[in-house]
Each structure stands twice: as C-alpha cells, then as structure tokens.
Amino acid sequence: MSAPILRRHLAAATLAAALPMTALAVAPPASAQPLSGRLVIYTSQLEADAQGTADAFRARHPGVEVEWVRGGTNALIPRLRAEFAAGNPRADVLLIADSLTMETLKAENRLLRWADAPRAGVPAAHVDPDGFYWGTKLITTGIVRNARAPMTISSWNDLADARARNLVTMPSPSVSGAALIHVYAIVQNPALGWDYLERLARNGLTVRGGNGAVMQSVAGGERAFGMIIDYLPIREAAKGAPVQFVFPAEGVSAITEPVAILAGTRNEAAAKAFVAFLLSREGQELASRQGFLPADPAVAPPAGFPEPASIRVMPLDARRALAEAEAVQRRFAALIGQ
C-alpha cells in the first residue's frame, strides 16, 4: 500500500474516533476527505445505467476516476476467477445481479468486510448481516403476458393450467442468476415447491437463454407467458410493446443487485464511498430514476411499478439455497429435459 493512502486511512480513522456516532451515520468517514485515484467497477448493470451511476458518483466525488466494465454475471465471474488465478484482480467494486454469487465469494475470502457500512434506509433484510455485501435495489421475477394470450393470470398456478399448455417459457437458470434464485425461491416455498415445478414441466414449460430472450419470445408471440425480471416488460410496455407484467398473488422472487468491495482493492476509501453512495437516499433515487425498484422502501418507485408495500417477496434462505445448489440445479435440469 502506498504511503498517501495509508495516511488517508489513518486520518479517516482519527476523524472517525473523534466524531460522535450520530454524525458517523450521516456521513461515512471516507467522505471527510476529498477522494482521489482510480476506482474499477465490474457490474452487470445495463450499459446506460452503469454510465449513469458512474456519472452520478463522479458528481459527488470529482477526484475519483471511475472505470467500469459491464457484462452479464456469467461473463464477469469467469473473468474474475481468471484474475484470481493470475493473482492480481483488477476490480475494486463488484455490482452484480444476485447475492448467491456474493455468498460464494465471501466464503472464499474474496470480499472486504465493512461491518458498520451506512445502509441508510435500506432494510437489514437486503444486506449481508456479516457486512460483506449490500443489496442496492429489488429486481423481482414475475410473469410477462402477451396481449393476445388466451387468458388473464393472477397466480403462479395459472401457468400450470391446461389453457397455458406449451405457452410458458422462462430464462435458463444456467444463464440468468435471477432465474436461478427464482427456482430456489419456488422450491423453498411450501405452497409451490417441486410439485409446482413438476406440474409446469408436464404442462410444457420451456427455457430460453436469458431474460432478454424470454422478452423477445413473449413479445413476438412465440410464447404467451414468461417468467421474467420486472423492468424489461415494464419498460417495453411503456414504449408500446404488446405485453403486460403481473405480480402474482403468492409473491415474486427477488434479487437485490448487491454491491461488494473486493478484498484486494487498491482504493478502499473510494470503494467505500461508492457503496455508501448506492445505499444513500441519493443513490436509491437514482435507481428509481433508472427504472428499478429501490431497495429503500421510502423512496418512490418508478412509473409502472405498484406501491413497494404492496409487493410481496417470497422469502429465500440463501445459506440453504447454496447448500442445495448443485442438487437443485441437477433436478431442475432433469425436469425440463436438459
């Protein structure tokens, strides 16, 4: 570590010790000094959103040079693993789709612990209790319906109905992290469970690649219904696509697009400021402006979404999901004939 960074840490620590706790909660210690240096972010955010997030952060911390690389979680993970194997990871911050991937990285000691990160209005349920990663928004998986579909739907069970035979598709859990979480959430839901997935498979459920492929399949009329992440159909419907997004009565599954700091970061102060920014009121309002459901329920959701209080999220035990991961994925793959 270079001397100036070390000095900055010492200064921040001294400052933090001198400040009362209430002040600490409002302003994270790192922002007490102007930040500088390069911050490399690996993110699965969409191109425009990644740009917007970087720009908004730079407006707050003009001294930091933000560099971001975007890709699907399934492209970023091989990249990160190769960097680990070569012994020199380049990223400081990881902002990716699902917390399961974060859990494995945490178990491998790849993440930096920050126990007292200021999570502002983000509920404790959306952050890692051990302080390794923090949810930044809610991306829920519900149902997209083509306007020409033969029936309306309000429940997950409607997709297993005879009228929906061969009309349902979903993203492959091997491609989409959200779809994987969705399968775990259904398996863990006593009202649905494997029995529901088996009924769906018997009813002709097919998988497509990612959520984008499901969107095209349903919007183009190749399939009538799709399990899909919320913002794609909501955004496209606003632009005139013949689709509608439904929050089923049993609840939706959700991923939280968590942010984490890599253990080998070269710019810890800026990385912490970035995390704090995403969780702050300002960061949450940015997420809403970008068309996502903010993690902070006090921040108004974007147009097209219902009141956050009315959205029911199916509970998910991440530890159990991780322990059963291999078995669940095999059983699901066998179910849909992979």
Partner: peptide, 8 residues
C-alpha cells in the same frame, strides 16, 4: 431496428 419496442 425500426420499431420502438419488442413485438411492435
């Protein structure tokens, strides 16, 4: 490329 949204 010429339509505003998927499926239009």
């Amino acid at each position: 490329a010429l339509v505003p949204a998927a499926g239009v």
